[in-house]
Structures are given as C-alpha cells and as structure tokens.
Design a protein around this nucleic acid. Sequence first.
DNA 1: TCCACGTTATGACGTCTGTCATACTATGAC
DNA 2: GTCATAGTATGACAGACGTCATAACGTGGA
Lengths: 180, 180
Amino acid sequence: MVYSAAQLVRSRGVAATGVRDVVAHANAPRGSFQHYFPGGKDQLVGEALIWSGDFAAGWAAEYPATTRRPTPAGLFAHLVRQWRDEFTTRGFERGCPVMAGSADLAGGDSPVNDQVRAALARWHRAVTDQLVRMDLPRHRARRLATLMISTLEGAIMTARIQRSVTPLTTVVRELGPLLG
Amino acid sequence: MVYSAAQLVRSRGVAATGVRDVVAHANAPRGSFQHYFPGGKDQLVGEALIWSGDFAAGWAAEYPATTRRPTPAGLFAHLVRQWRDEFTTRGFERGCPVMAGSADLAGGDSPVNDQVRAALARWHRAVTDQLVRMDLPRHRARRLATLMISTLEGAIMTARIQRSVTPLTTVVRELGPLLG
DNA sequence: TCCACGTTATGACGTCTGTCATACTATGAC
DNA sequence: GTCATAGTATGACAGACGTCATAACGTGGA
C-alpha cells in the first residue's frame, strides 16, 4: 500500500494523489486504510517517502558489487543508470518521489516535510558512505554527494519534461571527468 | 494574475493551487478570471509557466552586463546567485515553477506539458546562447547548458528540503573548476 | 436615450477530497 | 458457547475544487 502510494506520488504529485486512488491501486479494501494508517494521508505519504529513501540508499549501497574498481564517476553512472533503465523500459510517467514531495510541500509547513528531509538525508548519507569507502575525506565526500544527487535530480526532471534520456547521458558524460 | 499564479504554483505545486486562491492573491475580481482565461486553469498555469521561462531566460541574458570577462563558471554562479538571494531574503517557500510543473504533470498527458516543455526550452536556449557567445561550439554549449540547469534545479530542490543555501554554494564551488 | 460591449458580480452545479462513524465479518482464547 | 479483538465494509459528512450560467455594471458611440 505504501508502495502504491509511492508510485502514484511519483507520477502525479502528492496533492493530486488521493487516498482512494491509492487503495484502489493497491487492490486493498478501503476500510483497511483507516485501520493501518490512523494518521491519515500524511502518514501514508510519509511512509511512502521513507520507503523511497531506503530504496535509493539501498541502490547506492549495491554499487561496489557491480564493479571491481569503484570510482566516484562510476558511482554516479550507477545512480543514473537506474533512471535510464526506468525511463527506457517504463516510460517517463514516474519521477522521483523526493522531488514530488519537495515540489508540493517543501513550501508549506506540512508535517510530511520531516519525512522528505529524512528520505533525502538517508539517500545522501548512503552516497557519502560509498565515497568514503573510496578513501575520500568525509567532508569532501559529503560535498560530492550533494553535487551528484543535485545533478541527478535535475537531469531526471529535464528528461521527464523532454521525454528523452539524453539529459541523463549528458550529465554523466560531462560530470564524469570531474569526479574521477 | 499570471504572476500570482506563478508564485502560488512555486510554493504549493500545480494541483494544490486553486484558481480561487490565485484570484484572491491577485486581488482580482473572480468574474474576471473566466473572462480573461476562457481556457480555464490550464491556460492560467500555462501562461504562468511561459512567463517563468521568459523570466529565467532574461536573467541568463543579463549575465554579460555583470562582468568584464564572461566565463561558463561565472555564468553558472550568476544563475545560482539569484536563488541564493531568493532563499536568503524571502525564505524557502517558493521553488522553481518548472520543477513544480514537472513534478505534478510531466507524468500525465495534461496539455500544460507543452508549456512546461516550452519554458524549459526557452531557458535552456538562453543559457546555450550565452555559452556560444564565449566561443564554445554550439553542440558543446547545449550539453553544458543541460548540465548547468540540471545541477541548479537539483540544488534548488535540495536547498528547499534542507532549508539551507549550502547545497547552492556547494554545487557552484564543485562544478566551477570543470566549467572553466 | 438607446444600444452594445467589455468587464465584474454572484450563485449554483456536480464532483472529488480527507475524514469520521458505524456496522459487519472473521479468527482465536477461554 | 461466549466474548474480545483485528480487520473489513459502507455510508455520510463538510469542505474545496473547476466550471458554468446569469445578471448587473460601467463606459463609449449612435
């Protein structure tokens, strides 16, 4: 159910995603929603965002298993690759849940902002840890992780708007040399 | 009125922004909305996005007047500076309208997607032109513009989530050396 | 004065939202 | 059997949404 919520939020945004849509998408009984989510919609999308943050962090953590010589550039390419695959196989319908949450509620004072922040922090931490494993000093790893995530998110946005994966390949090609 | 729409979309997203809110924010009579915007909400947010794209393009075009020796890195810093000022003086309430439009409707088939695409294209074109003026070949200028805009957008998102301008200063510091 | 037209005012429509209240069914303990 | 409890099923609520229909208003020309 939180998975369904995440998918719908990714494609339509937070505000446009109704709880009725989520329960229908999850083939769940409508009465179960209020039983498992007494916190209402806020709790639902909050858990969806946390789940997404964990997923992104897990994906970053899998990078060492995909190569024999890990590099920052390779890590960035690994992060981008997931989105290129997503777009090529499933189309441009779904974007990043963190961006969706940010765009819809980062301006206000919704309690879900805590979960948006937590999801991004978890993801950022995972990327940083990978860079630290490559013997980068932690403070520099943090800055590089910020750069990577920012560029990736922006490229995701651009790619979805143009409905083309070119921005993804462009940023990985242009940013790679700097990252080493 | 399209200006009010842009501001509200920037802070709350497209779906969460009601036409009633817009006319109230613009101190405009409610009956005027349907007179000037017979196309309804789609037309309103569409024009708001076009307006935003023009504004961003204009900002990019102003760069040469701010320096004696234009460089790609200086241009990027110029683009980022606007957002650092926005966040420091007006807080993190308002984000980028293009991102808001992308997050809320890029997944579906809303007719407003054309305007989102147009706004991004106009902005991208303006940045590209600036790079071409620095004697970069057009095809390379296009790629660098994609990188700049993507990184900037992602940094805006990150900054708003963390409610800190640090991501902005980080990306300009890390990306600068590569851009030259 | 009269009409026409651009603009504003207001009320209502149907639909959707999130949430709540209530009743039902199952399962398991004793 | 009896009872409690977890889970499910509906229906209704008040409010907001986008849109439409209609009427009133102001101003300029004939």
